[in-house]
Design a protein around this nucleic acid. Structure first.
Lengths: 340, 340
DNA sequence: ATGAAAGCGCTAACAG
DNA sequence: CTGTTAGCGCTTTCAT
């Protein structure tokens, strides 16, 4: 079913059909009505390729995230989606496991498909990879990008400061031997949290040597494993800062399994503020990341660039604050009751 | 940058360029090398639209789910993605909140974009909506479909039997006053679980009147609320079957908040087997749904239909079993220790 | 207000 | 093995 057939049946030329599709006001109401009726009766939908071939726009934006089974990334996706639907844009979602080669391949396929714009979350891309988009004048916004990537649009949050704040909180309420459990991925994000930990411990004059730092896969099981290793080394420990809630939940599970109590024996602070973290026992103190909001803001920035057709506009960096959410697992309430 | 320019620079015709793109073996190695070099140097990528206009294929399949912030649906997405990547297909993801109008709109936009095939999870579509795809000969596979939708490809799991099994388990280990907390969405899925509950209670000759059944939004908060209402009615209760783990977690939270114990005072069984359900206190007895597998199987079925180009092949229904996962919250272990 | 016609970039049938 | 060429379906000047 194509424009020609519609034209035949309606007894007009293809140009007129194209007009009712694109500039309906420029067609006489009577003919327009007739044409619309014919379209309806023939179940006609314009061919998207033919149109794209002419207009060179797809009405599609792509979102590239490391992992789909992750509440945080999906919150970002939801933010992006809410904007996209409003702007009548489709979303292509791709996951890459933060593997640079897969990322490059994926981006190439996006370019081939002439998507209108791209949002990249926590990639492993390097500075020189940026030429990929530059050459194609494709609008791109990064979320939680590698700080090495300069001169690009970015929506960021302050992982380092938030991590430092979390560790400081543990210190303030009296903990001294504070370990760090960190995930391997996403790389940059965890790097910044590590920095925050070092900084807070350094400032307080506390030990933050490598023996106190354990790295594992960013999963519940990874947290469990890291905690096991920490405990098996037999160092005294009264607190642990964990770079993700998932790992924190695994770590708490291990602590409880060893017959110790959270937070009385070991206090735990996580990072992410997953929905579930308010329902584990004890409720987890954690850092709330503004994921939905970052997705929303990134998508707005992107659609603005697309609509105003200025892919090379001055890049912006937007910072959205993360903040500490104090619950039970850090021992704050106990401390509170000690005072009174 | 287009095929013509590449042809000029390489001193050959466009046909030859097209050949190295599509049937490289049919081009003399020497010319091919030369052409590839020119392509490289010009950063040439074939125009997606022009190609699609000719071939009428996009290499894209779409996945339509009710909600993106849901571990189960994302597990399906992962299954689909794993197949899609292998087949070099892109995925468009759309969420519709099980709102029929949004679903219809989304599907129309998919048809316009000439996607190669579509996977629909838990839709609110009715039988007559099916003509939409039929007319377009678009291959479609449903996951967890409305039973009213007949004559279509479906990948299903046995919600009713699994629910009945869960309730039967509660009955077997001695519970008698068993309530049901059910979510409003997804509609069909919850309907089947309700049926399973009724059936199991009926068979055991137990009360399963409406007063024991509470419906709320399918979230942690919804479960909390439903449990509150159940308890405030003051009926005696020794077990509750909840149609989702999220709601079950909310329900357990309420029970604990009222100073009662799970499972000693009220046993709880959920449905979904979320990752987190093995880490809440007490660990949740639940039904494991084969979501990843359903996504995988649906995507394979779809890509088979696409590759063999037979959109009207005899529709298949594939059933994948859910199964009960016994942990602590149902009281099984206690019962066990009573025996010895 | 409407029509005729030139392409958009590519593929594949046909010819050599 | 390579070139010529007719479209794929649509949008958009340019005429009328």
């Amino acid at each position: 079913m194509n424009i020609k057939e519609v034209a035949n049946r309606a007894g007009v030329s293809v140009a007129t059909i194209s007009r009712v599709l694109n500039h309906p006001e420029s067609v006489a109401p009577a003919t327009r009505k007739r044409i619309e009726a014919v379209m309806e009766s023939l179940d006609y939908t314009p061919n998207w390729f033919a149109r794209g071939l002419k207009l060179n726009r797809t009405g599609t934006i792509a979102l590239m995230v490391p992992e789909i089974l992750d509440q945080g990334y999906m919150e970002i996706a939801k933010g992006v989606e809410d904007v996209a639907r409003q702007k009548d844009q489709n979303i292509i979602l791709a996951t890459t496991e933060e593997d640079r080669n897969r990322e490059l391949k994926t981006i190439e396929s996006f370019i081939e498909r002439k998507i209108d714009g791209l949002i990249i979350v926590s990639s492993a891309l390097t500075k020189k990879d940026l030429t990929l988009f530059r050459n194609q004048k494709m609008p791109v916004v990064f979320i939680s990008k590698n700080p090495e990537l300069t001169g690009v649009n970015g929506v960021l949050t302050n992982y380092r400061e938030a991590a430092a704040e979390a560790v400081n909180h543990l210190i303030e309420i009296g903990h001294r031997r504070i370990a760090l459990i960190r995930g391997t991925k996403p790389f940059n994000e965890n790097k910044e949290k590590l920095d925050g930990y070092h900084q807070a411990m350094e400032n307080a004059g506390l030990d933050h040597s490598d023996g106190l730092i354990m790295e594992e896969e960013n999963t519940i099981e990874g947290g469990f494993l890291a905690m096991s290793r920490l405990l098996s080394e037999g160092r005294p420990l009264d607190g642990v800062f964990v770079t993700s809630d998932n790992m924190a939940i695994g770590a708490m599970d291990k602590i409880k399994q060893m017959g110790m109590r959270v937070p009385e024996d070991i206090a735990v602070v996580g990072f992410d503020n997953l929905k579930i973290s308010g329902y584990v026992e004890p409720k987890l103190t954690t850092v709330a990341k503004p994921m939905y909001r970052m997705g929303l803001v990134a998508a707005r920035l992107l659609t603005d660039i697309i609509e105003e057709d200025r892919p090379e506009a001055e890049p912006q960096e937007i910072l959205i604050q993360s903040k500490l959410k104090i619950r039970k697992s850090c021992g704050h309430e106990d401390r509170f009751s000690e005072i009174f």
